[in-house]
């Protein structure tokens, strides 16, 4: 694999929060590279820094020190507007709590990022139609989030995350709020997207099922990479 395949590069990143008088060191000089097409799971105990790492990689939070590069672009050098555009065009997010917009239908939620990009409506329709068919969401286009089950909402969230063809999808505990059967279905979908479409995923998880499906497992402890292994894929 060439260096140009590196989608995410985290270089000696530290992140320190101030909670009152106490400094909380969420990340302590963490290094990580994720290449295109990987399906990487970050695991480790609660408070180890997994979510903080995803937030920093997703340009939602700034590191206290170190560099984060997405496709070679140093996030620390980008303006607020450039960061918005980077999140819109190159990063997809799947949140633990789905975080769909309640006033929009499933279809509208899924097309939001493409609409922001200015993709014409017919192209959006075709793309979302294809994704909904692939994810078993056909017939649910006009439903509002509160008319969908947790698994359906998470599938819509995945469709929203990948619709615009991001370089990487960051998923924070994507199966935490759904039952086992739904979790398996979600993992099937994400695995399929990874293997067939080459979508790069980074999960944070405690879920052994997610870890089983991941091709690369990175253990985070105390804000550092404590070890990693492949999963035989």
């Amino acid at each position: 694999m060439s260096p140009s395949d590196v989608v995410v590069s985290v270089e000696n990143v530290t992140k320190t929060y101030q909670q009152g008088r106490v400094a909380v060191h969420a990340l302590r000089g963490l290094d990580l590279e994720v290449r295109a097409g990987e399906l990487t799971a970050l695991y480790g105990p609660s408070g180890s820094g997994k979510t903080t790492l995803l937030n920093v990689v997703g340009a939602l939070d700034h590191p206290t020190a170190g560099r984060v590069l997405i496709e070679g672009r140093d996030l620390g050098t980008l303006s607020r507007r450039e960061l918005s555009h980077l999140r819109r065009d190159r990063i997809g997010f799947v949140f633990q709590a789905y975080n769909l917009i309640p006033v929009l239908t499933a279809y509208e939620n899924a097309e939001t990022v493409m609409a922001l990009q200015g993709v014409p409506a017919p192209a959006r329709r075709a793309r979302i139609g294809e994704l909904f068919a692939e994810m078993g969401l056909e017939g649910m286009e006009d439903r509002r989030p509160d008319e969908l089950s947790g698994g359906q909402q998470q599938r819509v969230a995945i469709a929203r995350a990948i619709a615009a063809g991001p370089a990487v999808v960051l998923a924070d505990e994507p199966t935490a709020n759904v039952d086992s059967e739904t979790a398996e279905k979600l993992l099937d979908i994400m695995e399929k997207l990874n293997s067939e479409r080459g979508v790069t995923f980074i999960f944070s998880t405690h879920d052994p099922r997610v870890m089983e499906r991941a091709r690369r497992l990175v253990r985070i402890v105390d804000g550092r990479v404590d070890g990693e292994r492949g999963n035989g894929a």
């Binding site: 999140r87 990022v113 922001l116």
Partner: peptide, 16 residues
């Protein structure tokens, strides 16, 4: 407020 956070996370600019 969480919704606005999500909108910004998925690429909404402040002006939007």
């Amino acid at each position: 407020i969480r919704e606005f956070g999500v909108l910004k996370a998925i690429g909404f600019e402040p002006r939007q």
